[in-house]
Amino acid sequence: MLYINCPHCGMRSQNEFSYGGDASVKRPELNKEVSDQEWDDFVYNRKSLRGKHLELWQHISGCRQWIKVERDTSTHEIFRTFKANEEVA
């Protein structure tokens, strides 16, 4: 069982959360010409790192907020959690 420290509600079990994928993926800017490659990278291509991975989760059975979680994909250790709009250094 993973325990995720929701920045809004505190420590909760993974059963309350739903996964949202790689948080480092950025949607191409709206008013800019977007190449096929950029769109491809946004929609399909993923680094899927082994080790530290910044990802989105939604506290679906709690506050329903989207949050960012920094987790190790091989040990499942969770290092830090952030609000969705927080910049991660």
Partner: peptide
């Protein structure tokens, strides 16, 4: 969720 753990939850 992304995982390389080869063991389940």
């Amino acid at each position: 969720y992304n995982s390389y753990a080869q063991r389940g939850n």
